[in-house]
């Protein structure tokens, strides 16, 4: 379907903007709001041009209060709308954790389906662009530990657009984290018009046989770079883009490891308790028989994300660190 469409070269934030535009156009229940989302079009311009097009009843600014935004959005979703709330940075989600942990993913369960929360919470996450303190956090593991929500982290403009449209159609709450590094860092062909991509599917973005690199969001690009370097030395690495963290597509990961026998899991959040630990645990449970080396994680160090930008690159995993891990699993 997608292949038959016309495409344009756009970046990830433009792809998000297109998806929001199409969702607003298609479904009158969709409303968009958050801090600086309306008049200004968002700090990253994800909602640029949408308030003039759809009016300030459907695209609007809110007071500066994240718990209020998420609580308000939960109420709007319960009462029949399809809100898309923006949290300005994922590191600003923390004031809303009570709403998220106590209610967001529980409402369907605690009312036996009488009330549901078809809500998308978008937030830019991750480092690599020299932002101030708290602006580079990767809190996806916290969100994945909330029952009843889905968590999506796209790795390219094309995937972002289709997955965001799927998230907005989804009957349950979805967190949609967008890597800040990719917002304007990558341009790629994106199909025109409305299309959706499946939630809950991981995909092989590069085939290889020596080892499997597993990543999501901003780290997929890093793994692809590492795979290119390795290929020049004759080592073919498989790269998997997890894409949906919850529900996790374990079979695709297991299938790849069954082929390669080696796995490196890459994520930029702090290593301990990170989502890569969940991936490693699932592989240990379901793919141990295929493994020829211990699973290795490449992640952020167990320290706060450094707000001193000169050394930021030493925190966020890069191709060099990924290749060191590859060497480790290959020489075990």
């Amino acid at each position: 379907m997608i292949a038959e469409r016309g495409t344009r070269i756009i970046n990830l934030v433009q792809a998000v903007n297109e998806a929001l535009d199409l969702a607003l156009e298609r479904d009158p229940r969709v409303v968009l709001f958050g801090e600086d989302v309306g008049k200004m079009g968002g700090v990253f311009r994800a909602s640029d041009g949408l308030q003039p097009k759809y009016g300030d009843k459907r695209v609007f600014d809110t007071p500066l209060a994240e718990s209020g935004i998420v609580g308000f959005a939960i109420g709007m979703a319960m009462a029949g709308l399809r809100p898309v709330a923006e949290i300005q940075f994922a590191g600003f989600l923390y004031p809303a954790l009570d709403q998220i942990l106590s209610h967001l993913g529980r409402m369907r369960h605690r009312t036996r389906g009488r009330f549901t929360i078809p809500l998308v919470i978008r937030a830019p996450y991750g480092g690599g662009v020299k932002t101030p303190e708290q602006h580079a956090d990767s809190p996806e593991a916290i969100l994945c530990h909330v029952p009843g929500v889905k968590v999506i982290i796209p790795s390219s403009p094309e995937r972002a657009k289709g997955l965001l449209l799927s998230a907005i159609e989804d009957p349950d709450p979805v967190f949609f984290l967008e890597a800040i590094k990719l917002y304007r860092g990558v341009k790629a062909e994106v199909p025109e018009g409305y299309y959706t991509l499946p939630i809950g599917k991981a995909r092989v973005v590069r085939e290889g046989s020596a080892a499997t690199l597993i990543a999501y969001g901003g780290m997929v690009e890093v793994c692809q770079k590492a795979a290119e370097v390795a290929a020049r030395e004759g080592v073919e690495l498989e790269v998997i883009d997890v894409e949906t963290l919850v529900p996790l597509d374990t079979p695709t990961l297991v299938e790849s490891v069954a082929k390669t026998g080696r796995a490196v899991v890459v994520y930029e959040a702090m290593r301990t308790g990170g989502f890569g630990a969940e991936i490693a645990a699932r592989l240990a449970e379901e793919a141990l028989d295929y493994l020829e080396a211990p699973i290795v994680r490449v992640a952020g160090w167990d320290a706060p994300y450094p707000p001193f930008s000169a050394v930021e690159n030493f925190y966020r995993p890069d191709a060099k660190r990924v290749l060191e891990a590859v060497r480790q699993v290959l020489t075990h």
């Binding site: 209020g68 998420v70 609580g71 109420g75 979703a77 009462a79 709308l81 709403q99 106590s102 209610h103």
Partner: peptide, 18 residues
Amino acid sequence: PIATQVPQAAGVAHALRL
């Protein structure tokens, strides 16, 4: 939980109005 329903009620009310 205590008072978490207040922002949700504001959202419900606003959605009814919209």
